[in-house]
C-alpha cells in the first residue's frame, strides 16, 4: 500500500455499515479505502440465517455479506487487510496507524469496527474456549452431533442459534437469567415449540467445568439462589456484544460500555471522524440499522469534504487577495 497517498475516506471495519458508507462515498467519486482485519462482512458473515433484511425472505449471513462485498469491489472501493492500532490527526490530515507500524493518510475517517461477542466472565470460560465453549454456532455446531449442549442468552442471537444448533445436538438447554426472552416473538414461538430445546429460566452460569473438554455447568437460580449441576458437552454463549473501540483510547467520546457517542448524523466529537453500525451507541443493533448508519455517514462525509474544499478555496482566495 502506497502510504504517501492521501485518501478522501478511510473506513475502519468492513461490515455492513462500513461497506454501505463506502458505496455512497465511492459513488461520489471520493477515493475510499476500507481497512478490514479479517474478512468483509464482519459478524454477518458468520450469522446462520438472516430473515429480517428487506429483499430476502431468508438468506445466509455468508451469502449476504459476499453480495455486499462484490458490490463494493465492483464500484472500485479498495480493501486493505490490516489491523488498526490507533488514529490521530494534525491540522491538515488524519492518520490511521496499522499494527505493522505503517500508517494511512486521509481527509476523513469512518469508524465501523463493530462489536465482538461478550464473554460471561466466569471461571472455566477462557480455559475451555475451543474446548466446548463456543461463540459461533455455524462454526462449531457440527462438532456437537448427538450431544447434549447448552446455549446461554435470551436475545435474537441466542434464540436463532438454538434453532440452528437443534439440528445437530440431541438436546439443548437454553439458559436465560430472566423469566422472559428479549428476542423476536417469532423466534420465541419456534424455540418454545421445539421438543429438543428446554428452557432453563431465571438461571445464570457461575462456572464452566470439564476435563479435556467441557462436561458440566454450575448454575445458580437468580430467584431462589439455589445452585445445581447441568452436565453438558458444550456451551454456546450469546449474551450480547462488546464494541471494538479499544484502539480509540480517548480519541472520541465513548459511553460506559465503550460504544462511540455520535449525533443522529453520525458525527463523533472529532470533526471529520464519523461512526456507524454496531460500534455506535444506539437502541437497535441490526444489519438494517447498520446499513442506515452507513448511508448517513457516507452522505455526511460527502458534505464534510465539500465544505472542506470550499474553505480551502476561500483561504486560497484570501491569501491571493493579501498577496495582491
Amino acid at each position: 500500500m502506497d502510504t504517501s497517498k492521501i485518501w478522501d475516506v478511510v473506513v475502519v471495519g468492513g461490515g455492513p455499515a462500513g461497506m454501505t458508507a463506502a458505496i455512497y462515498t465511492q459513488r461520489s467519486l471520493l477515493e475510499t479505502l476500507i481497512v478490514e482485519q479479517l474478512m468483509p462482512g464482519g459478524n454477518v458473515a458468520i450469522t446462520n440465517k438472516v430473515e429480517n433484511y428487506p429483499g430476502f425472505n431468508e438468506i445466509s449471513g455468508g451469502e449476504l455479506s459476499k453480495r455486499m462485498e462484490d458490490q463494493v469491489k465492483n464500484l472500485g472501493v479498495e480493501f486493505l487487510s490490516g489491523q488498526v492500532e490507533s488514529i490521530s490527526q494534525d491540522e491538515d490530515l488524519k492518520y490511521v496507524t496499522l499494527s505493522d507500524g505503517s500508517y494511512l493518510q486521509t481527509k476523513s475517517i469512518i469508524l465501523s469496527t463493530g462489536a465482538g461477542w461478550r464473554n460471561l466472565g466466569v471461571p472455566g470460560e477462557r480455559k475451555f474456549t475451543g474446548r466446548g465453549v463456543s461463540y459461533c454456532g455455524t462454526c462449531d455446531g457440527p462438532f456437537f452431533k448427538d450431544k447434549v449442549i447448552a446455549v446461554v442468552g435470551g436475545g435474537d442471537t441466542a434464540l436463532d442459534e438454538s434453532l440452528y444448533l437443534e439440528r445437530f445436538a440431541s438436546k439443548i438447554f437454553l439458559i436465560h437469567r430472566r423469566d422472559a426472552f428479549r428476542g423476536a416473538k417469532i423466534f420465541q414461538d419456534r424455540v418454545l415449540k421445539n421438543p429438543k430445546i428446554e428452557v432453563v429460566w431465571n438461571s445464570v452460569v457461575t462456572e464452566i467445568q470439564g476435563d479435556q473438554i467441557v462436561n458440566n455447568l454450575r448454575l445458580k437460580n437468580t430467584k431462589t439462589g439455589e445452585e445445581k449441576d447441568l452436565p453438558v458437552e458444550g456451551v454456546f454463549i450469546f449474551i450480547g456484544q462488546e464494541p471494538n473501540t479499544k484502539f480509540l483510547k480517548t480519541f472520541c467520546d465513548l459511553d460506559k460500555y465503550g460504544y462511540i457517542i455520535t449525533d443522529q448524523e453520525m458525527h463523533t466529537r472529532v470533526d471529520g471522524i464519523f461512526a456507524a453500525g454496531d460500534v455506535r451507541k444506539k437502541n437497535l443493533y441490526q444489519i438494517a440499522t447498520a446499513v442506515g448508519d452507513g448511508a448517513i455517514a457516507g452522505y455526511m462525509i460527502i458534505k464534510y469534504l465539500e465544505e472542506l474544499k470550499c474553505k480551502e478555496e476561500e483561504k486560497n482566495e484570501c491569501n491571493a487577495d493579501q498577496n495582491s
Binding site: L38, G130, R131, G132, C136, D140, F143, F144, Q212
Partner: peptide, 23 residues
C-alpha cells in the same frame, strides 16, 4: 480434541507448543 474451528496448532519437534482458536 478439536471442537471449534478454526483452531491452529503449533508443532515443534512433534509436540504441540501453542494453540490459537478462532479467526
Amino acid at each position: 480434541n478439536i471442537v471449534s474451528i478454526p483452531t491452529i496448532l503449533f508443532f515443534k519437534s512433534g509436540e504441540i507448543v501453542d494453540t490459537l482458536i478462532g479467526a
